[in-house]
Simulated assay, not measured.
Amino acid sequence: MASTLYVDRESPVHRLNPVTKLVTLLTLIVVVFAIPFWWVAGIAVVAVIVPAAVVSGCGGRLAKLGFAILTPIILVLFIVQGLTFPGGKTALWEWGGIAITTEGLYFALGIGSRIICLVFASILFVLTTHPGDLLSALTERGMSPKFSYIISSTLQLIPAFQDRANGILLAQQARGLAIGKGLRGRVGAMMPLLAPLVLGMFTDVEERATAMEARGFGSTARRTALTPVPDTTAQRVFRWTMPVVAVAAIVLPIVTGAL
């Protein structure tokens, strides 16, 4: 059972320092949310995320996970905003007191494009970054090991949760748990999972805390990395440039009056 979504590949994207990818992800999110135009997020997806996914060899996995997460969100967003947007005046379709407006759909396009960029960029980061490498790279840059662990452990949260749920379900099926067909059957099967799943996660957290304490995880002494994460001067310069780009993306709409 996989404890992470990381896909092991020998690609240029995988070989990048995890801090470089994290800074790029954060900058991309700031840019698409700061500049109030949907096409900015579209350019980010087409010009940055798609080429990186192709080069990394994770395009198929990225598309599968991304569309599974985004499809219900985007559908609900367009339906709700198209029907209920308060500033909507131009009706594209009307039936009784219900109307889908151009303004509502355009607003949904702006929000939806940002969400799409955020989700795809985050998933690509998780697929191409090993949690251990991220923890080591952040610690090498002077970040607190505890805070570094919090960041890197989020990359393993969903797979670990899913693995535990699958293990509990298989164990209960071996003891005679019957799973019905259809949505009702799935909901009924979920109920016996909740208590052992939640309690198991609390137990797992306690065990990890004890193990880290025994290994001196809270020590303030400078640590020597057993397997240093490769880094280059070009990447370090790039990382220092990205905050400037993020600040410019925030200031530019204010100066130009685009907000």
Rank of each mutant, 00 (worst) to 15 (best):
V247Q: 04
Q162K: 07
A53S: 10
G167E: 03
A2C: 12
G82Q: 01
A234E: 11
P230G: 00
L259K: 13
V13L: 06
E103L: 00
A41D: 11
S56T: 06
P72S: 09
G82D: 00
W93L: 15
V40C: 04
N166Q: 12
P12N: 00
L118E: 05
L105H: 04
A258N: 14
V251C: 07
P230T: 01
L199P: 03
G200R: 06
S148G: 08
Y6C: 12
S56D: 11
T220H: 07
A99K: 02
V80T: 13
P145A: 00
I254C: 04
L124P: 01
R114N: 03
F78Y: 14
G188S: 15
L127A: 04
G176K: 02
P12K: 06
M1Q: 13
G132A: 07
A248Y: 02
A189N: 03
V229P: 01
M190N: 15
L5T: 13
A99E: 12
G42Y: 08
I158R: 01
R175H: 05
P131R: 01
G57W: 02
I73K: 02
T227H: 14
T232C: 00
V32L: 09
P86S: 00
L134Y: 02
V23K: 06
N17L: 06
Q81P: 05
A174I: 12
P228S: 08
S153L: 04
Q172M: 08
A52E: 09
A34S: 14
G180C: 00
V229C: 04
Q173D: 05
D133W: 08
Q162V: 15
R184G: 15
M191Y: 13
V247D: 03
L16K: 09
M143I: 11
G42E: 08
K64N: 10
T203L: 13
G60I: 12
P192V: 04
V23L: 04
Q162P: 01
Q156R: 13
L75C: 08
P228K: 11
L197K: 02
L226E: 08
W39M: 14
R114G: 07
T101I: 05
G96Q: 11
A160P: 04
L16S: 12
V237Q: 05
T232F: 00
G60C: 10
I111H: 02
A165H: 07
Q235T: 12
P243H: 00
G112P: 03
G104E: 00
K89Y: 11
V50K: 03
G182Y: 14
K21E: 12
V229H: 04
S219C: 04
G188F: 14
H14L: 05
G57A: 10
L16C: 13
L170S: 10
G257Q: 07
T27S: 05
A171K: 03
G59E: 05
V40G: 03
F120Y: 08
L194I: 11
A44C: 01
S136M: 11
V76H: 07
S144K: 06
A52H: 03
T128G: 02
V237L: 11
I254K: 09
V255M: 10
A52S: 13
S219K: 04
A214D: 10
A121L: 03
V119T: 07
L177M: 11
A209S: 07
V126A: 15
R222E: 14
T128A: 01
S3F: 15
A249N: 07
A44K: 00
E140C: 06
M1S: 12
I29M: 09
L25Y: 08
P196K: 12
V19F: 06
A99Y: 02
W39S: 13
L155W: 00
L26W: 03
I168C: 08
A258L: 15
